[in-house]
Amino acid sequence: MAHHRPMQSPPPLPIQGAARALRLWKVALAVWVVPAVLFLPATVAVQVALGPALGRLPASEEVPPGDLALIVMDGLRGMAPPVLLTLIGGCALHWLWTLLWHGGVARWQHQSDGDAPRLSAVLGLGCLSLARSICLSVTAALGFVLMAVPAWLVLWLWSSRQYRSMNDGPLFWGWMAGTLLTGLVTALSWAATLRGFWLLTGPARCSPVAAWLRGLAASLLQPLPTIATLLLWTVPAVGLSLAPLLTGWWLEVARGGLVGALVSAVAGALRAFCWVALFVSFAPTTGKGPRRGLRAVGTDQPPAAPSPDAGAATWRP
């Protein structure tokens, strides 16, 4: 029986991520389009609830203080439950979609010869590994809680003691520490999840829990490259998410119509590219994963029986 050494998780490579994301442009396209479709019911609901009332306002939208808030409140009053339901549904479906393309891209990368992927193939592979992806995500959520809770518990106990002794002076620094800690835990947990997808779909079959834990270990061993990569792709992604909002706030022409659609399209596509690039930045070094039975380096020999030394180190293009 073939035995594979557990795969190692190398340091993330943002540049490699960008290059791979370009190759995975169809996936990026889907990452851009699908969330917009998933949230279409919610946006339609809001438009139905508020569109007519807001459309009747003067073009300048200069109205007495409070009128806008009152109109929005009034419009959403009866619509709050359906809007909330579509919102929650959208978030849930978006979560599933993300797991789907993460798993699909990871499996594709492991098995491909470097060809441009077919979207249907990627998504098909994603479906095959969806159950394990869900387990990985649940593990990540639990892992985050287990990491964050003790830290916050300590912080809370300390804050309570300070508060009960009527000394709230140091509370700010405590809360700052807690906030930074939460950010760090979030980043590590996230990186562990991203790495976990690659480990999960690699040749050495491991459980979602093991994959996540190994991903966490690798992130802890490589903190700076991990966090740097996360920031490098996340900051522009968030900025691009906000770009249509801010443009539309200041320029009426950017609220819908051709210009609005163009701004949204460009920002959305670039944002999707960032998310895909982030994910593939954590891929193993090569674009091609080891197949069942490894090919010896630099030879055309048929696959040899796996040796105890087989593992990530033997991956070569």
């Binding site: 569109g51 459309g55 073009a59 919102l87 996230w190 819908g256």
Partner: peptide, 28 residues
């Protein structure tokens, strides 16, 4: 014929909803 479909507030509300999904990204 003058009713605006491009109200600033309406645009914000419609655009901000999909962004809420980004919150789930670190855990998926």
């Amino acid at each position: 014929d003058l009713q605006s479909g491009s109200s600033r507030v309406g645009w914000w509300l419609r655009s901000i909803l999909p962004l809420l999904a980004e919150v789930s990204v670190p855990w998926s």
